[in-house]
């Protein structure tokens, strides 16, 4: 199980980094989402992986899994959700105002009509 979790985190992270480096807003937003998923799973795994163990006190529990990473992941999910909403709105606004979806500031500005035809 450790191998599956670790390699899935690595794959999501690699895909996320690749997409973030694409320097166009839509792939970048997708990449950032993938990166936050990878981070969330990673945080979850920091409390050691365990199957079928409760995080909170329970009279007939055989053992416990670490509850703190779960609380951290919850916070991280909420924050990353809000941040994704912010970046989507800002990227849309930047696209509408400048006519292209390049993240790079120095990229030559092309009108929307030209981009669509090319």
């Amino acid at each position: 199980m450790e191998f599956i979790v670790a390699s899935s985190i690595a794959m999501m992270m690699a895909a996320g980094v690749y997409l973030v480096l694409r320097a166009q807003t839509f792939p970048v937003v997708l990449g950032l989402s993938l990166m936050t998923y990878a981070v969330n799973v990673f945080l979850f795994a920091t409390g050691k992986l365990a199957i079928n163990l409760p995080p909170v006190i329970n009279a007939d529990a055989a053992g416990y899994t670490d509850p703190l990473p779960q609380a951290l992941v919850l916070t991280a999910i909420v924050i990353s959700f809000g941040m994704t909403a912010v970046i989507v709105v800002m990227a849309l606004r930047a696209y509408l105002e400048s006519g292209n979806d390049h993240v790079d500031l120095s990229a030559p500005d092309q009108p929307i009509s030209k981009r669509r035809s090319s």
Binding site: V20, T25, V28, L32, M35, T36, A38, V39, I79, S80, M83, V86, I87, M90, A91, R93, A94, E97, S98, V103, D104, L105
Partner: peptide, 17 residues
């Protein structure tokens, strides 16, 4: 301003990760 803002947000989101 908005384009620089997008860049700023992206850098900081990567930083947060």
């Amino acid at each position: 301003c908005v384009r620089a803002g997008v860049q700023y947000v992206i850098v900081n989101l990567v930083g947060s990760s």
